[in-house]
Amino acid sequence: MGRLDPGKLSVEFRPGVTAVSPILGRKYTLTHSDVTAELFLTVGLVFDYDKVTSMRDEVLAEWSRSGTGLILSVCLYVGNFGPHVNAVRNAVFRRELPLALEAIVYGDNQFFAVHPQLNHAAIWISFVSEDPVYSRCEYWGTPLNYK
């Protein structure tokens, strides 16, 4: 992808998670600073809700099982802020999602090196909104697409 500036990505591994394990239960919380354009990735057994702001523009992802194997499930909160704000939030999430996925894959690169089969796992994005126009689940490729 090439959009990520690794120097602007900070990665924190919480207790119970190492650079290579576990797979199931591994959760990612990606937040950012609008001022500095820095990205902050927390890898843990629970989402890092302490870093979630009232803007609710974080990216939450986790490894889980599906009928076809392991998948990376990603949740984005488009919200219920009215048609105009929902449209803007949806557009921003869609524009910035490739960068966010690249940050997760890059930030957890040792994990993907030790578990190369996960490079081919499906990424499913849930856009969460009470507005049916924006509430959907979409396939966004595999981690390999974001290296």
Rank of each mutant, 00 (worst) to 15 (best):
N119I: 04
L76I: 10
R56E: 09
L101V: 08
E138C: 08
L41P: 12
W63S: 10
P83K: 05
I71F: 04
P22G: 07
R94H: 10
V35W: 01
H115Q: 09
K147F: 12
Y134I: 03
A122N: 13
L118S: 06
V52D: 11
R26G: 03
F93Q: 02
I23D: 03
A113F: 04
S21C: 07
N80Y: 07
D131Q: 07
Q110L: 15
F93S: 12
A121P: 12
C75A: 09
L72E: 12
E102M: 05
Y77F: 15
V128Q: 04
Q117M: 13
M55S: 14
G25V: 07
V20E: 05
I125F: 00
R3L: 14
N119Y: 10
C137H: 06
R14E: 13
L60A: 07
V11F: 04
G82R: 06
L72K: 03
E38H: 09
T53D: 11
E12I: 06
R14P: 09
N80P: 03
V92G: 06
P132H: 01
E38V: 01
A103R: 04
L45S: 15
G82I: 06
D57Q: 04
S126I: 00
A19H: 06
C137M: 14
T29V: 10
N86P: 13
G2Q: 05
L41W: 08
Y146D: 15
N86F: 00
G79R: 02
